[in-house]
């Protein structure tokens, strides 16, 4: 871990300004991913701006009946919030499917959106990786790729967004609120938050330099039945092979987002429209452009079977 200086910001705009004006600066919230990566020198910030004192640790009701989640709200607190459990159960389910109790207690809402990939070659600094070092090459494409992406990937990088929370947020059409260094705010639909990186896999989100996540806004509740099925090799404390977030209405329509398959939570409105036609139709549409490796091609039938299980549960 390289040396860094550390400060606690007093306001979101000040935090954004500090990161924008200090070369090599980064925000730190929970730190569960950032500190891990700093130890391996995959992240090498020279200055950390801690956002824990900004009052962004509350979940508030919005006027239209949704929720506004502060960026520093812990995964545990968010998943346990009565309104989330009642009206956005898919989000509670997704969060509780991720990591461990200890990590969920520390990991923040904003930080979890920014969680970086678990690709083994990204994590090993002796290995080529276009995400760590643009132009370096990708060791994963012809290597150990079982866990990696099958769609939305590129010739430069087949990593996935590894988290669970954002998959549910995608199904809910959450909106990420930010503040820029100049103090202006903007709202980014979570659908547009993670990039399909093409040949710039080191740029993973729509955030501009210094732009800070302040809140995540959940629209009014969708109703329907909420499911999050995460399939993994062991039963807990593991990354998804495939996860499926689904909100399904009694008439069979609904929304489906897939995790563990792409650089972002994977959902298409065209695939949603196929829900009344069954899992095969949804997956055929959602994964029409998939380019899996030999090792991870199973993820597509697995996605179909996982969704089919949800639909069967829905019917019973």
């Amino acid at each position: 871990m390289r040396s860094f200086t550390y400060e606690r910001a007093a306001s979101p705009a000040e935090a954004a300004r500090a990161v924008a004006t200090t070369q090599g600066a980064k925000f730190i919230a929970g730190g569960t991913n950032l500190i891990d990566l700093m130890k391996l020198e995959i992240e090498t910030p020279t200055h950390l701006v801690d956002v824990q004192d900004l009052g962004l640790d509350r979940v508030e009701e919005t006027e239209e009946g949704g929720l506004r989640i502060g960026t520093f709200v812990s995964n545990t607190a968010l998943s346990a919030h009565p309104r989330v459990r009642e009206d956005y159960a898919v989000l509670t389910r997704a969060i509780q499917a991720g990591a461990s109790g200890q990590l969920r207690n520390k990991a923040s809402t904003g930080g979890n959106l920014l969680q970086r990939t678990r690709c083994a070659y990204f994590y090993d600094t002796n290995m080529p990786c276009n995400k760590r070092k643009p132009g370096d090459g990708c060791a994963a494409i012809d290597g150990f790729s079982r866990q990696l992406g099958v769609i939305g990937t590129s010739d430069s990088c087949i990593a996935t967004y590894p988290g669970d929370m954002a998959v549910a947020m995608r199904a809910l059409d959450a909106v990420v609120e930010t503040v820029k260094p100049d103090g202006t705010a903007r709202a980014i639909p979570v659908a547009d938050f993670h990039r399909l990186w093409g040949d710039t896999p080191h740029i993973e989100t729509a955030l501009e330099p210094g732009e800070m996540i302040t809140h995540v806004r959940l629209p009014t509740p969708l109703g329907g039945q909420h499911f999050y099925h995460k399939v993994r090799d062991r039963r807990s404390y593991a990354y998804a092979l495939v996860s499926v977030a689904a909100v399904i209405q009694s008439d069979g329509t609904g929304r489906v987002a897939f995790g563990g398959v792409a650089p972002k939570p994977w959902r298409s409105e065209a695939a949603d429209a196929q829900l009344p036609n069954g899992a095969a139709a949804v997956v055929r549409t959602a994964f029409a452009d998939a380019r899996p490796t030999e090792q991870n091609a199973f993820k597509i039938p697995l996605a179909e079977r996982t969704l089919a299980g949800i639909l069967a549960e829905m019917r019973s």
Partner: peptide
């Protein structure tokens, strides 16, 4: 679950940490 994945090009075990090498947990 346990499987050290050999990268036969580079000649090493690629999943060389406790997140990548999955030993049983309580829930298993």
């Amino acid at each position: 679950t346990e499987d050290l994945h050999v990268d036969k090009r580079f000649g090493f075990f690629a999943n060389h940490d406790l997140a990548g090498y999955e030993v049983p947990v309580h829930a298993d």
